[in-house]
Structures are given as structure tokens and as C-alpha cells.
């Protein structure tokens, strides 16, 4: 087996500049996106369609179903926070993500294509309630 000689290139200025540029990009986009206000409502979308919006201050259990009526996941709103109790997906990342309560925060269940987003009252809700 003739393995080509590995050329070890040292980290140079160009690369350090790229890393710093990336970190600056991350910081600026963080400042743009980040607003740590407690949200008022919860928006649930399934496959990019609005499933419903719910009041975050009312304790309630929400069953999210697909078009065929099969339950995709169960979520619970309690003490102004929402978390996913159980889901039909395999990796259960949405369950392990825990509680969210600040506006802009999301719980995403990729296998089921369910997105739970916290929104402010002022935010416009486009679409029709199901």
C-alpha cells in the first residue's frame, strides 16, 4: 500500500482570520436574533402548516396529530413553560430538549416535522387556526 506522504500544513494567518470572521458572524447574528423575553403564546406547526396557537399561561395538554389523525406527540403547558412529554419518533430529541418559555425558542421534532415555537402577543400569526 503506497500511502502518499501527508503534508502537515501549519495553521496560518489566513485560517485564524477565517475563524475570527466566523465568530464575529455568530456574535452579530446572535445579537440580532436573541431577545430573552418571556413569550405569551405557543405556535405549533406540522409540516410547515399551522396546527394551532395556545396560551402559555393556561395549563393544558396538547395532542399533536397528523392529517390521518394519528398522534405524533403529546406536549404539556405548565407554569408558562411548554415541554414534550412523549413522541412517536425514535431519537426522542424533542423530549430530551426539556422546557422552553422565552420568545423565539423552539422545540423541533425532525422525524415528525413538528415545530413548537414560543411567540409574543405582538407577533403576527399568519394562517388559519385549525
Amino acid at each position: 500500500m503506497n500511502i502518499p506522504k501527508i503534508t502537515f500544513i501549519k495553521i496560518n494567518k489566513k485560517e485564524i482570520l477565517i475563524v475570527i470572521g466566523l465568530l464575529i458572524l455568530a456574535l452579530t447574528s446572535y445579537l440580532f436574533i436573541n431577545n430573552q423575553n418571556p413569550g405569551a403564546k405557543v405556535k405549533i406547526e406540522v409540516n410547515q402548516r399551522l396546527y394551532g396557537t395556545y396560551d402559555l399561561n393556561k395549563t393544558q395538554e396538547i395532542l399533536v396529530r397528523d392529517n390521518g389523525g394519528n398522534i405524533l406527540l403529546r406536549s404539556l403547558i405548565i407554569n408558562g413553560k411548554i415541554h414534550v412529554i412523549s413522541s412517536t419518533c425514535k431519537d426522542k430529541i424533542c423530549v430530551h430538549q426539556g422546557e422552553i418559555s422565552l420568545s423565539g425558542q423552539t422545540i423541533v421534532c425532525l422525524p415528525n416535522k413538528v415545530v413548537i415555537t414560543i411567540i409574543n402577543d405582538a407577533d403576527k400569526i399568519d394562517g388559519v387556526l385549525k
Partner: peptide, 17 residues
């Protein structure tokens, strides 16, 4: 493309870091 760009954008800073 499938779930909307605002979710992807929300995680952008954390992902880059």
C-alpha cells in the same frame, strides 16, 4: 426548505460557535 428558514436561522449562532 422543509420546515422554514427561521428555525435554521435561530440556531445559526450556536451552530457556528
Amino acid at each position: 426548505f422543509t420546515l422554514g428558514w427561521n428555525i435554521a436561522l435561530f440556531y445559526l449562532p450556536v451552530i457556528i460557535v
